[in-house]
Design a protein around this nucleic acid. Sequence first.
DNA 1: CAGCACATCACCCATGCGGCTCATCGTATG
DNA 2: CATACGATGAGCCGCATGGGTGATGTGCTG
Lengths: 225, 225
Amino acid sequence: MTIKVIIVDDQAMVRAGFAALLSAQSDIDVVGEAPDGREGVEVSRRTHPDVVLMDVRMPEMDGLEAARQLLDPPRGVTHRPKVLMLTTFDVDDYVYEALRAGASGFLLKDAPPADLISAVRVVAAGEALLAPSVTRRLIADFARQRPAPRRDGPALRRSGLTPRETEVLELIARGLSNQEIAESLVLAEQTVKTHIGRVLAKLGLRDRAQAVIFAYESGLVTPGQ
Amino acid sequence: MTIKVIIVDDQAMVRAGFAALLSAQSDIDVVGEAPDGREGVEVSRRTHPDVVLMDVRMPEMDGLEAARQLLDPPRGVTHRPKVLMLTTFDVDDYVYEALRAGASGFLLKDAPPADLISAVRVVAAGEALLAPSVTRRLIADFARQRPAPRRDGPALRRSGLTPRETEVLELIARGLSNQEIAESLVLAEQTVKTHIGRVLAKLGLRDRAQAVIFAYESGLVTPGQ
DNA sequence: CAGCACATCACCCATGCGGCTCATCGTATG
DNA sequence: CATACGATGAGCCGCATGGGTGATGTGCTG
């Protein structure tokens, strides 16, 4: 099964270069191109690519907005491609915007050609990949964001939840589905359900909505970060 | 200028393999090895490597603790190597622990050899690099953490909810089921479902659990009282 | 009056979720 | 060594939940 790719970039030469590079791979098929975000979205809707290579800076509609539209499609549109953002410059605002929108990767155009090719494969496989400098910032941000360990609310302490159960409860309170919790903790969904069942039983709650309430009321999570 | 590397892993064969692989590079010099975290820290203090390849799971002192000691050194120790964590296949909380500790990368041992080599170079250059699966989770986590620039202030924009919809949302945030909400407001359950459907759609939420979160985060309801 | 937003309710359908039971494994704890 | 607990995960089952579509009545407003 070949990987279908479209290339969205306002510079024709860049498109041609990437297309040539990727088409030379037996497992990659360039099925479309577009010079701006608006057309990029159209081409994507029409060709249903697995991966969209998206330049950040473009006329008409920039790559970020286009990425948002592709990754949060309107009703009726079921196709959701992976989006790999490309940029010439190393600018961090764009990075965060793109990742928030759900992009699967962020590469600089000066990366080695081999990196671009492998990035397409990685992204198509459902994984993600970032330029090293971007990774560094993301990690720094992550480390800064929560160096603080957990503090227990009074209600929590008496609840008799195990550490794992508490962890699951917190993810419920972040709005994750069972499947997402499973992925986040690297567990089978069934295990998550078991944990949740115990949490609900121990706390005398009926469903996850009440679990969210408990999490807020007990201070396990707090409004505003 | 060659990159000085030490390898910390409890499996001698793994150490030998990595050492051979890296030593074959003209710009990389393996200057030490250690079978556990404790000795790894000692060797690092003695040899002052640029990069420490650190297995996560080890006897005596695991890679996470060793990484913490290397990245947050006591007084008098000025040397601070870059730490590149390695693991066989566990991609779980270790990752977050390691990144929090300040590790520059996290790779799976089944990655292509070329990846390891380039990772060493990337890390030595002060950048960072993660295994694709790790990157994916980090991005997912990031996107979830800050889904939108926090339209803060108690003056929340409840994005066009009608009075009745707001009322229903509040009851959801009190933990009531659809049937209970219906009884509470003297409505048919179907009507409640319609209201909830609109609330979820207008707010871009998936289920009532997320609705509860929104209610707390927006200040519609507040913890305590 | 026509148009519109809002509230109300019905029907259908797919499925996420929670209840329940049971099994395995590792680590404390006695 | 036996026991208990925590974590993991499988299978089954029923129902609440959420999505979609459509209809009716009301009150406000141009």
